[in-house]
Each structure stands twice: as C-alpha cells, then as structure tokens.
Amino acid sequence: MSTYTIPVGPLHVALEEPMYFRIEVDGEKVVSVDITAGHVHRGIEYLATKRNIYQNIVLTERVCSLCSNSHPQTYCMALESITGMVVPPRAQYLRVIADETKRVASHMFNVAILAHIVGFDSLFMHVMEAREIMQDTKEAVFGNRMDIAAMAIGGVKYDLDKEGRDYFIAQLDKLEPTLRDEIIPLYQTNSSIVDRTRGIGVLSAADCVDYGLMGPVARGSGHAYDVRKQAPYAVYDRLDFEMALGEYGDVWSRAMVRWQEALTSIGLIRQCLRDMPAGPTTAGPVPPIPAGEAVAKTEAPRGELIYYLKTNGTDRPERLKWRVPTYMNWDALNVMMAGARISDIPLIVNSIDPCISCTER
C-alpha cells in the first residue's frame, strides 16, 4: 500500500491545544511526522521589553496557566541575581510550597486527560474531582485557582499562619490517600489503561540526551535529571525526596513518573510546612536595577525552564528570553510516533504534556 498524509490539527477533538502535525502513514502505521508550530504566536518576549520589572511578573505568569508559578519565579530569580537581593529563608520555603502545589495540579490534569483519551471517562472524572482538592487549596491560600500570583521580586506575596498551615495539611490528608490507594493503582493495573499505554511511544534514554529532553518525559525513560536535584534552588537542597524514574520509556512510564512526582510534591509541601522558619517574606524594596545579565532555571512541571534576562540600567528589560521544555519534547515525537498506530497519536502527544502557550510566545 502506498503512503498517504493525514493532517492532525491545528484543531482536533483529541488534542488539547492547537498543534498541527502532518502524519505520513502506511496503512495504520505512522511512517514520519512533520510538525508545524506558530499558530498562536503572541509576541510575549517583545512585550516584556515594553513593560517594567513589576509588570513583567504579571506578564510571565500568563505565559502558561499550568506552569504559571514557574515562569514568574524563574524571572524573579534572574532579576534577584542581577540586583544582588537575598530572598529570606521563610520566603524560600513559601516559594517551594507554591511551586509544588502547582506541580501536583499540573500532573493530575495530564494523567486525567490520558484516561479520557483511552475512553475511561469515569476515571477521568474521578481524577479531576480529586484535583479539585488542590484547586480549592489554591483558591483558599492564594486567592485564585490558576494564576496564583505568589511571586514577588525578593520574596513572595503571601504568607501562611497557623490556620493556613492546618488547612493545607488537612487538604493534603484528603488528597494523598485518594491518589495512593484509589487512583494510582488503577493506572498501574487496569487493562483499559495498561493495554493502550505500555509499549506505546517508546523513547530511549539515549534519545532523550540526543534531543535535549527534560522533565517527566526524560525521566520516564530513566534519564536522571531534575533541576531540583542537579542545580537546587530555593530550599530544595534542604528537603528529602527521591527522583522519580521510569523503566520503559513509554506512555505508561511517563504517566507513572507524573503520579510518583505528585506524591513526592505532597511530601515536599509537608516538609516545608513543618520546617518553615519565622521571618520576613520579602527582602524589602527593590533597589535600582543595574545593567547586567543573568540566567536562572527551575524545574517546571514539564521540565527544565531557563530564563535569560538582560538589563540596561532602566526598569525595563533590554531582553527577556526563556527556554521551555515543550519545544524539545515536540521534536522527539518523530521518534515516539515512528511505527505507532494512528489511534495512538493522541496518547503519544498527550504523554509529552504539550504546552502551546509556553512554546508559541
């Protein structure tokens, strides 16, 4: 049979966001993939040079909703490096709490979509119902369910008193057993999930290195790199946690890495709530911004997020650029989709947790 081309996207019922793939297939098997990006370009890097340092906290938080804490945090870290500001210990713990809260919600959303794609909609709704525990927590603690506005230059904009800590712990006490005892075992053993995801979209650790992949996609293939471990920021070097690694490099392994990381994040939040010292939540007023440049990186839910910031002595950046993990993950779809069935395409695409907002900026 001769090959033929199937256009997938930019609008498609099985894809979360406007991606466009031209899939060359032979019968039911994928032969090659041509990825076209740029459908929702917003020019945010240019806009950042037209706004002052405070306005850019708001702007960077709106790059992506699921990574909305990681972007302003990394931006603030780069600016703090240029100004020499030292973030107080309490604020560093509060930054980790905000970071890991967003990570739990992000990972739960991705693996919920996996269940929806395979047709297990009751599990999809169960995961999303459990995710509401974290969403309610964000609304109660930060005042918003998505863009939580926790970051400030030199610290954070929120604090937790005893009542807030007790509430947070109570919410984690509800969520953790639901994940550990009810939801995760279904993903590990249910045939509707396992039969559709094991051995699908396989990516080796060597491929991860070749394509420069990061985050749960790379760790699902056993590639042991996590910014929180290799280049710790905030107080991650004071916290006890293990890096989650997959064994098979397939869709199922990437899902299981995200589940393990969700449990790990809950443990990190508990440690921060327990060990967080008293003290100020900001370093005080921002000093005049000198000319300079800095690079900062964090572990966003999808992987390593890098910010480059260049200042010129004014309150507006001369250049602000970020490197997000999704773009490299996109490129690796050429490996993951090779030889796959047409019906597996949405599962493989979802397994990289694509973020068009981060990528097309």
Rank of each mutant, 00 (worst) to 15 (best):
V8T: 09
M19L: 15
D26V: 07
V30M: 04
S32N: 13
V33H: 05
D34E: 15
T36D: 10
G38W: 00
H41L: 01
R42E: 02
I44D: 01
K50Y: 03
T60K: 00
T74Y: 01
L79N: 12
I82T: 03
R95H: 02
A98P: 12
A98D: 09
T101M: 07
S106R: 08
M108E: 04
M108Y: 07
G119C: 07
D121E: 13
L123S: 05
E132H: 13
M134V: 15
K138N: 15
F142N: 02
G143P: 05
R145C: 04
M151D: 15
I153E: 07
K157P: 00
K162T: 15
Y167P: 09
E176N: 11
T178H: 13
D181Y: 13
T189F: 11
N190V: 03
V194H: 06
D195R: 15
V202C: 05
L203W: 00
A206R: 11
D210A: 13
V217K: 00
G220W: 01
D237L: 02
L239S: 11
L245C: 07
R258A: 09
L263N: 06
Q271I: 11
C272Q: 08
C272H: 11
M276K: 12
P277K: 11
P287N: 06
P287H: 02
I289H: 11
A291G: 14
K297S: 15
G303F: 02
G303M: 07
G303Y: 03
R323I: 14
R323S: 12
T326P: 00
N329R: 10
D344I: 05
P346G: 10
I348Y: 03
T359I: 10
R361V: 04
